[in-house]
């Protein structure tokens, strides 16, 4: 199992992501954004978190035009699995690979804390080790995590079970930290091979550091 992890100027979660997947037994490779291809044995491509291109213009807006992104789109079009975490989620929405957009948090504050999330749809490879209604404890750290999608788009997400996770309290009741439409924390595409979320599962790998709920999530990709 080979996990390829994208690195743009300003990416800062690539080594945490590498550590997380290697702890689960995967081999990993970090791919610089100037590369025009991704390793042919890639079974999961991760767009890691950070502040690609300093978040200039909009978060993720410039990264979508990096040379490697064409290879990423081809890979996803062929059914390859792609996971965008935090800034990676922003890049994937900007690139049109996931629906919606991420706006400035409603409070205008950068939020960095553990947050509980409710599993909305586990009928996908990412969350297959969890059940609908389960609550996981995963850190969030973002300024632009306020997910927006129009009513028609939201209806499609619901009809196709594309909403992965929502922000909740420990009991699974809605608790919205950033103003996201329907408290949405993560979505996937219709084909269920491209996933994006603002929370950081790669930072929840050790119970001694607050939570190991990220293991259950990321392990889903290793089963395939």
């Amino acid at each position: 199992m080979k996990v390829s992890i994208l690195q743009f100027p300003g990416t800062n979660c690539e080594y945490d992501t590498q550590h997380a997947f290697e702890a689960l037994g995967a081999s990993t490779e970090i791919i610089w954004h100037k590369s025009e291809s991704i390793p042919s044995d890639t079974s999961l491509l991760v767009v890691a978190g950070g502040f690609s291109y300093g978040d200039y213009l909009r978060s993720g807006a410039i990264a979508q035009f990096s040379p490697v992104m064409k290879a990423v789109k081809d890979y996803a079009d062929r059914g390859g699995k792609v996971l965008g975490i935090c800034n990676g989620f922003q890049v994937l929405t900007e690139a049109g690979m996931l629906p919606g957009a991420l706006k400035r948090n409603e409070s205008l504050h950068f939020i960095s804390k553990h947050h509980t999330l409710k599993v909305e749809n586990s009928d996908n490879i990412f969350l297959e080790n969890l059940h609908n209604g389960d609550v996981v404890n995963i850190p969030i750290a973002h300024h632009d995590g306020n997910y927006f999608i129009d009513d028609a788009g939201l209806a499609k997400l619901k009809a196709n079970n594309q909403i992965l996770l929502t922000y909740s309290d420990a009991e699974g009741n809605v608790q919205n930290p950033n103003g996201s439409v329907d408290s949405i924390a993560g979505v996937c595409n219709k084909e269920k091979n491209v996933f994006g979320l603002m929370p950081h599962p790669e930072r929840a790998m050790e119970s001694i550091l607050g939570s190991d709920d990220g293991v259950k999530m990321l392990k889903g990709f290793l089963a395939s």
């Binding site: 213009l57 909009r58 807006a61 410039i62 035009f65 929405t93 900007e94 919606g100 957009a101 706006k103 927006f148 999608i149 129009d150």
Partner: peptide, 8 residues
């Protein structure tokens, strides 16, 4: 293509 994100 880039200057605006026409979703929002």
């Amino acid at each position: 293509e880039i200057l605006a994100n026409t979703v929002i």
